[in-house]
Design a protein around this nucleic acid. Structure first.
Lengths: 345, 345
DNA sequence: GGTGAGAATTGTAACGATTCACTGAACAAC
DNA sequence: GTTGTTCAGTGAATCGTTACAATTCTCACC
């Protein structure tokens, strides 16, 4: 190693000192150039800018973080990056964080509590300014808060308000209500709600909304089938069950707790000669891409995933910028009905 | 500011000094405890461990990065986090990076060159030790290397070898060859390859593989239909075209460049009374979850996404740990044929 | 009990930024 | 001319680690 700059083995970055020297100013002035440019005269500003440019200077984030005591990175842990809902949330967080000048450390817990906690520890080590967490369903949140070591946390898609943190959730009940009301207004009276397992808060809340809509209307009945999961395959099995029933015994409208379920079910029914939506109308949930693209496009409830991410990042940015005056709050978003052929008139 | 600990406004982390004091050792010993534990006597090691524990001490990553000159974070930029192939890659990278003790900064360029470059700049600022990049198809790579500022880069899913970096790719040609050979061995002779646009390297390479297989067999013909995208919807349109043809004029086997295409096409054909696989056998590509779950489960070519991620992270770790002796290389993985009903005997 | 070798531990100097009390210069007011 | 005020720019101290040279401890051996 006979290089003149043996500091770091591979790349040689320039430091503020180099920039200062080149621009003929001091150390601190370069720092001011980046952090409080209004303190510099126009002339100095230009000199520094030129030097920064010529050296392709990039401030060292570690040094800055150390000196400031805190960086401007935020962390996000999402339960399942394979689920397009969370991918949308991630996209939202990403863009809002970028807008607020925050860097994003994105992690995926893959529905594994240990991994979720590992990531929270990692964020602690990195001294992130805050954390956005889409936790496992049904989990206690105390641990998450402890692990984040007093840093601000925003919960996404965690049911229930919370005194010590902000949150963003969707009104799942309202989604169920929208779906059921839509079908009832179409004149359907024999409703079936399919989804499960019911201990998932989303599945249960959607059902509650459906029940509310049903209760508001005379002469509408509701049947409930709990499934053990929400896959297309399970949907197809559900389709078989319905096809096997006597026509009079079938519902005239089915509310599925997920699009995948609806798609599978519809597929089997149409192949068995049951007409959708004529004989049975369908609604799904989530507005996944294949809901729009399947053979019979599925009416669905769209979750505002991207918006949730944007809002979560916004709440976090607000808390981070203004810890003293910040007041915790939970934002509840309304899902939207998207009508397609599976429930056309 | 009358707090005893006015350092950071919110959380109060302990420093190595605090741990040292509590354990009755020096500063540097605590550092050794973390970085070169074999230098400590068993007794000291225990004392320090206890103190670390009691104070819930977490080393400050920024300070460490600054002192070491480089951190142990690597960055990954993926073109499209909405695509399950890249999600698999991300998962692989994630787990292998964790294994190697590297932290992962995950970013999603969303098929946008500007965003990709922004993230590379961000990584530069953070002084990541290396970068894993799944770049936009057809892009020049020079820029990426410049932006990463001399740091090691591993390219994933970028066609073509490269002298200055490692890479991981799948043998797309082989995938096409597998699919076509499989169908030919089943006795099919009138093949159709559908996919597009052909300037995507994956689509073109797969076709080349198909052509090779066809050339190896007497009496097998190949028709090619270029589509403008690979969605289910386009698949359905393709299905219409085939259904409209006279039966004698149809292929007896279709190789689709993507599962989505196959699923849409099969869906329309079966509803139009064409039997799959009896009249026409199908293969898809990618092994997406809905290929397995659709009404007629689709034979497909599985891409080893997770493995690609693992290998990419491994190559990067190797280069990072051993920049002097490291030799760049490109690993080519073979995709695998997954036989399902759409091409059953 | 003195010596030397090796092991264990310590203390100090970086690392590259931020911060803030301070100096100088320019200029206005008396 | 002196004093005051404002604006620009300076530079030393600091953040919490790591690295390494220097020091102290331990113990076997003569």
């Amino acid at each position: 190693m006979s290089e003149s700059r043996a500091r770091s083995p591979q790349q040689s970055d320039s430091r503020m000192g180099d920039v200062a020297e080149r621009a003929g100013v001091s150390h601190g002035t370069v720092s001011n150039f980046f952090n409080r440019p209004h303190l510099l005269s126009a002339a100095t500003r230009e000199k520094v800018a030129a030097a920064v440019d010529e050296l392709a200077f990039v401030p060292n984030d570690a040094a800055r973080t150390l000196a400031k005591g805190t960086g401007n990175t935020v962390g996000a842990v999402l339960v399942d990056i394979g689920n397009s809902f969370f991918v949308d949330i991630a996209r939202g967080i990403e863009s809002a964080a970028a807008e607020a000048g925050l860097k994003l450390l994105l992690a995926n817990s893959d529905v594994d509590l240990r991994r979720q906690n590992d990531y929270l520890d990692l964020f602690d080590e990195t001294r992130v300014r805050g954390v956005i967490l889409a936790p496992l369903d049904g989990e206690q949140l105390g641990a998450a808060r402890v692990r984040s070591h007093g840093r601000p946390v925003v919960f996404v898609n965690w049911p229930g308000e919370d005194e010590q943190s902000c949150g963003v959730i969707v009104d799942e009940q309202h989604g169920g209500y929208l779906a059921a009301s839509h079908l009832i207004n179409l004149g359907r009276t024999k409703l079936l709600y399919a989804g499960g397992p019911l201990h998932l808060h989303a599945v249960a809340d959607r059902l509650a909304g459906v029940e509310r809509a049903v209760a508001e209307h005379e002469g509408v009945t509701l049947e409930i089938i709990e499934t053990h999961s929400l896959t297309t395959k399970v949907g197809r099995i559900l389709g078989e069950q319905l096809a096997d029933r006597h026509a009079d015994d079938r519902p005239d409208a089915v509310i599925c707790a997920a699009d995948s379920l609806a798609v599978g079910c519809i597929e089997h029914l149409t192949s068995a000669g049951v007409r959708v939506p004529d004989d049975i109308a369908f609604t799904g949930y989530d507005n996944n891409h294949y809901a729009a693209e399947s053979a019979v496009p599925v009416t669905t409830i769209a979750q505002p995933g991207r918006e949730m991410g944007v809002i979560a990042a916004g709440l976090l940015a607000e808390e981070v910028d203004n810890p003293a005056t910040h007041e915790h709050r939970t934002v509840v978003l309304k899902p939207q009905l998207v009508v397609r052929r599976s429930s056309a008139q």
